[in-house]
């Protein structure tokens, strides 16, 4: 693939990516202000991020994969339940996943 074709693709992706982000911020308040719409929009981040957590935790190349990530996220949930600090939770999850993989699992 030629460099110029690649450049066009790179810049097109960047422009469309920014436009997508910007449109969200530009939607007029009147369109999102009713109590029902307001509630839905308020719940959108939690829904999208919960979906993201699932794909990051068990998503594989060809479907669902249960591996060290699931154990690490389960540990994170337990630590959050115990009110552990954010940084501790993240480091503990990484350490468990790394250790399990070093032992040859996941």
């Amino acid at each position: 693939m030629s460099t110029s074709v690649l450049w066009v693709a790179v810049l097109a992706a960047c422009i469309l990516g920014f436009a997508t982000k910007y449109i969200g911020h530009l939607v007029p308040e009147s369109l999102v202000d009713g109590p029902r719409r307001s509630r839905i929009i308020g719940l959108l981040p939690v829904a999208l991020l919960a979906g993201l957590v699932v794909t990051q935790t068990v998503g594989g190349d060809d479907g669902i994969v249960l591996d060290a990530r699931l154990a690490a996220v389960a540990l994170a949930v337990v630590l959050l339940w115990l009110r552990a600090n954010f940084v501790i939770v993240v480091i503990a999850a990484a350490a468990l996943a790394a250790a399990l993989r070093a032992l040859g699992w996941g």
Partner: peptide, 8 residues
């Protein structure tokens, strides 16, 4: 796994 745990 750390990324997923951070989002949780």
């Amino acid at each position: 796994a750390a990324a997923a745990a951070a989002f949780v």
